[in-house]
Structures are given as C-alpha cells and as structure tokens.
C-alpha cells in the first residue's frame, strides 16, 4: 500500500511539474512570438486552456490523495479520536463513490460522445480533454482505498 501511494504520488508529481513548466514556457512564448518573431503563436491559447484543465483535475486528484480538500470540520471535531478515524473512512468511501459515478461514469460518457469532436485549433479530439476526468477518477479510487487502509490501521492501533 505504501509503495502504491509513493508510486502514484511520484507519477502525478512528474506529470504536473512537467506540465506546469511547459505551461509557463508556452505562455511566455505566446508573448515573445508577438514581438520578437512577428508571427504570433496561434496554437498556444488553446493548448494552455486544455493544459489548465488537465493540471487542475490531476491536482485535485493529488489533493484527494492527501486528504487536503477544504471542508468544515465542526462535526468531526466533536468526536473522539477513534470516532474521527471511523468517520474518516466514511469520507474516503464518499470520495470513492464520487470518483466512480461522476468522474469515471459521467466523465467516461463525456469522453465517448466527444471523441469525434475536433478541437478548432489543435485539431485533436475533445475526448482527450475530457479523459482527464476518468483518469483522475481511477487515481482517486486508488487513493481512497489506500487512505481507508491507512485509517483502518491507525484505528486498530488505537484499539489496543
């Protein structure tokens, strides 16, 4: 489990860091090409929009793995430590359900109807853009299982 988490973390880090670097470079290129080269880049705008979608959704999956999405903690604050651990597992299951239904099923539907839809400038299938959803869905499912497992282990430790 620990190995799987490290693997997922590394994978997302590699992807997001490279993409963020490329995004900054492309945005700067967009400015430079207008002045230095006299022929403005016409591909960069669409690329940056699509890259933003991917990095945001992958970033959201990463944050889900680290259980850092914003929430109101009033309710869990009233619980004992063991109660909090139990409730933490419930929240992980909610994440899992969300990932399976909205991201994998809903996102998969979006991918399937948009594979023949061609983006106006880069001329790539819009399905590739939507596929950020099912991909992050699968990652969130894995993270939820790992997180649940970890919470359960801590819970067992506190039982004794």
């Amino acid at each position: 489990m620990h190995g799987l988490r490290t693997f997922l973390d590394r994978l997302i880090q590699l992807f997001c860091i490279s993409l963020l670097g490329v995004m900054v470079a492309v945005a700067l290129w967009q400015v430079a090409s207008r002045y230095v080269f006299g022929s403005p880049s016409t591909l960069s705008e669409e690329f940056l929009r699509f890259a933003l979608i991917w990095i945001s959704i992958m970033g959201a999956a990463y944050v889900a793995g680290q259980s850092q999405h914003v929430s109101m903690s009033l309710f869990v604050d009233l619980m004992s430590l063991r109660g909090q651990l139990k409730w933490g597992m419930v929240i992980q299951m909610v994440f899992l359900l969300f990932a399976v239904s909205v991201l994998i099923m809903g996102g998969g539907h979006a991918v399937s109807i948009s594979m023949t839809q061609i983006s106006p400038v880069l001329q790539i299938p819009m399905g590739l853009i939507y596929s950020a959803l099912p991909v992050s869905g699968v990652i969130i499912v894995l993270y939820s299982l790992i997180n649940t497992f970890d919470l359960y282990r801590t819970y067992r430790v506190h039982e004794e």
Partner: peptide, 19 residues
C-alpha cells in the same frame, strides 16, 4: 445527470483567464 456534472466540471475550467 452524471454526464452533465462531469461536463460542467471540465468546461468551467476551459477559461483562459483562469490561467
């Protein structure tokens, strides 16, 4: 309903200004 939620999540991010 699931399709629409998914679609809205992506299209709301498809905004250059959000960069």
């Amino acid at each position: 309903a699931l399709f629409i939620t998914a679609q809205k999540m992506v299209s709301s991010l498809d905004t250059f200004a959000l960069l």
